[in-house]
Amino acid sequence: MLLLFLILGITWGGIYALVGLGFNTTFWTLRILNFAQGEYLMAAVLLSIGFNRWVNLPWPIAIVLALAVTAALGLVLERVAIRPVLQHDPRSHSWVVTTLGAGIVLQNLAVLLFGTSEYPFPKLMEGVVQLLDARVEKQLLAVFAITVVLVVLFDIFVNRTLMGKAIKAVAFDRMAAEAQGINSRGIVMLSMILMALLAGIAGLLIAPMVSAHPYMGTLMTVKGFSAAVLGGLGSPVGAIVGGLVVGIAEQLVGGYINPGLKDAIGLIFLFVILIARPQGLFGKKVAERV
């Protein structure tokens, strides 16, 4: 049992970490938290389904196209919900409302296009494997493996490419970055694309295990946010650790105490961390700048 809880917890935690990393990317470049994040997760899934069902595209193409559209929607979000707010007043915090609002718009668009019913989503692989005394589906391990690869790629991108260093530079000091010839506008757009892709891929990974519907993203916003804040906003390691902590704690509480409490775990961690250590586990005080 414990082993199974850990496997499930790590897998789900990885998904939360991806969403949490998405929170970080826009926090770095724009100093905002994008509360529409979960809706991007939903958008990628439903768009894939739409392209497959109604345009009759094969799944791989439908998924790539859906991710591209989701990324484009990320750019739209910056243009309509974030830039006007920050342009009007860089210290304004209206983005809390505008990103939440944009999320609601996306959700309602999805309801218009897809209705409130659920849709199936194909698995990557069938079959079951035995891991010590736990039996799990191969799909679950595939999700975990892809998550690990993504996190590693994200780390390489941010820490080992000039573009990644430029993102960090913009995050640290926008003017100083501009003074090096870094186009901070471009970096901001890149961060929106990254945000949308991280959320979108997270959605595509869980879609076969849960059901796809317009409301699937909302809870993921809460959990990804919990992961990001728990780990410390802006810290990639923090988002990953935060995601894993939330994911594993959920499974343990759901399994040993009460499944009904599962979804509340993220919020409970948020409360505790805010009282005990507002900058999060791995955060620097820099988070207080916002």
């Binding site: 573009m163 260093k165 970055a177 090096q180 010839g181 870094i182």
Partner: peptide, 24 residues
């Protein structure tokens, strides 16, 4: 100064050449 405090000295320098080359 406005150096990028969360990156290494070498990384700071490389960013100084951001427009000139992308070859790490």
């Amino acid at each position: 100064r406005k150096i990028f405090g969360d990156q290494t000295v070498i990384d700071n320098l490389m960013l100084g050449a951001y427009t000139r080359s992308k070859n790490l």
